[in-house]
Design a protein around this nucleic acid. Structure first.
Lengths: 359, 359
DNA sequence: CTGAAAGCGCTTACAG
DNA sequence: CTGAAAGCGCTTACAG
């Protein structure tokens, strides 16, 4: 069944069938109805390849997930916990707009060519990139060909510097404010010895969270120690190693700010095994608010990153840019939120209770 | 840049360029090299729509995720925990074979038309369906048009009955054996009072797990009680309600077999709030082995469903069928595994320890 | 308002 | 071994 068949059956030309399908206004209601009837009767749907070849959009966007984890790491925990809701949200929002989503995993620099390939083969109209280690040069290249891009978690300054032309939206959360809220909450609980379990420094959020930690402590005249600055790379295992090292080293801080929940969960496990109580002996804070954060005991105090809204924004922006002719680089920061649960408490003897802050 | 440009630059015809791209054997090495050089120099990639229109495959499969949860249920917990690894795995395996994946969410019966549409528009070569409430008639219809399908978690008997013709692979896990192993493990621990928190009965795995529970108890001459047969629908909230009802009713069983981990986690939470200790007062077992299962305290004893292998199988089968001409319906059952952790223990006074079974 | 025709960028018998 | 040509199924100026 092709448009020619529909035309014959409806007693019109292929041109008219096409005009009906594409909602041209200069088709009389009578004709439109006649054609639609035949279309519905035969469940006709135009061949997408033919439409695209004739100049239509693909109505498909590419979602590229750059994964921090190794390809053969079966757990791939970071991705599962953190990205899944994002992927869901992108698909939901795209589908709601009649747009298809082609999802790709990127595990290596070489895989990055997939992005270019998908565009060169004209499989997609636009792209969304999420994950670690974004190869900005490839993206800049594709963007300069005129394809819109939403980029999640990337330095706006670097985008402005590296993307000379193109339609690009950068979607971040306000991790600086989130970090600040968390640290001021801890300081408010009386903590003066606050360690950090940092994330990947080649990641925008990794750097922001770390930099803001340093900044806020400095503002409050609080010093940290080398042994309390742990490098966890956003990965559970690395985090566990670093925490163990700190424990063996001797004196613990009274609070540990972890740059993501995965690492916080890992830290909690190590502490528990070492009979270090949470939050009595040490307060542990996370970042992201992934699903398990509310399930573990003690439930994790963390900073919520609005992944769903970010996904929606990414889709919205990319579709908006698709309809525009001029280049444009836009920056969007969505609000983070402090989520107080049970893994942090007042420093003993500080005379402050957790409750004063949840109210 | 199109194949014509490459042809001109390489001093050959479009036909020859096409033969090089499609690996025809009757191209002399010399010619092939010459053409490839130009292709690489200009980063040429053939327009996919043109190829498809000319008769090539799309090299894209559709992944359709039927979601039990409501569209506007922000948590959509079931899907996140259970399906995410599956989606990941499908994408990994497809990409590894140079195949793209178009991911679609299905929330309503009406959404089911998306499947038909994707095929009619010739966007995909084959489909994989996962999730609850599979509208088998739509699938049968599409399958009868010759498009291969892998269906996850569906009754083989019903497939054989309803799909008269087509290329279909049904991929299940051995939930019957898994259920049996779990129940015999519990019975071995001395439990004679075993309740069940059942799943969705319009789901194949939901029915199998329930039916096998009844069967195994009967085989062991163990009776259950009406008040211990809870209907959780695979959903945390329903599960919590049912468990609460059972608690209020009075006597508890010594063990509760939950038909998925989400419900088990939910049950554990309710018990904890009611000061009922796990596993001392009641043993709780799950099914699936989702990520949080190993993280909660006590860690959940459960049955592992080999989601990753199932995803790989689904991709493999669908690609295999793509290369075949004849119709074929195949049934595949992948092994489940009993995972003993901390949420189940011997009935007090039974004189049996957990250790006797983990060895 | 509507049809005939050109064109989108490939692939593949066909003929040589 | 290789090129000219037909054809895939649409869309859209163009002409009327």
């Amino acid at each position: 069944m092709k448009s020619e068949d529909i035309a014959r059956l409806a007693g019109v030309s292929r041109s008219t069938v096409s005009r009906v399908i594409n909602n041209y206004k200069n088709v009389p209601e009578e004709t439109r109805r006649k054609v639609m009837q035949v279309i519905e009767r035969y469940q006709f749907r135009p061949n997408n390849s033919a439409r695209v070849l004739a100049g239509k959009k693909t109505d498909t966007i590419g979602l590229f997930i750059v994964s921090i984890a190794e390809k053969d790491n079966i757990n791939r925990v970071y991705r599962n916990n953190y990205f899944s809701p994002f992927v869901d949200a992108v698909i939901d929002n795209a589908n709601a707009n009649g747009i298809y989503v082609l999802v790709n995993s990127i595990y290596s620099l070489q895989d990055y060519e997939k992005i270019k390939r998908a565009f060169l083969e004209r499989r997609i109209d636009a792209g969304i990139v999420v994950g670690t280690e974004k190869e900005i040069d490839v993206i800049a290249q594709v963007a300069s060909m005129g394809y819109p891009f939403s980029i999640i978690d990337y330095s706006p300054e670097e985008i402005v510097r590296k993307i000379k032309k193109g339609k690009v939206a950068v979607i971040n959360s306000t991790d600086d404010e989130g970090t600040r809220k968390m640290l001021e909450y801890l300081i408010g609980l009386g903590h003066k010895e606050i360690g950090i379990l940092s994330g990947r420094m080649n990641t925008y959020s990794g750097r922001i969270r770390y930099d803001t930690y340093l900044k806020v402590l400095a503002e409050h005249g609080i010093e940290t120690r080398k042994e309390w600055v742990l490098k966890g790379e956003f990965i559970k295992k690395e985090a566990a190693n670093e925490v163990m090292k700190m424990i063996n080293h001797g004196k613990l801080p009274t609070a540990l700010f972890c740059c993501n929940d995965d690492m916080a969960l890992s830290a909690i496990e190590v502490f528990r095994n070492e009979k270090i109580r949470i939050p009595e002996d040490i307060s542990v804070a996370g970042f992201d608010d992934i699903m398990p954060a509310s399930l573990v005991k003690p439930a994790l105090t963390t900073v919520r990153v609005p992944l769903y809204s970010m996904a929606r924004k990414a889709v919205e922006e990319v579709l908006k840019m698709l309809g525009e002719t001029s280049d444009n680089i836009s920056i969007h920061s969505l609000e983070t939120e402090l989520i107080v649960r049970d893994s942090c408490t007042a420093v003993s003897g500080a005379g402050i209770t957790n409750d004063s802050f949840t109210a």
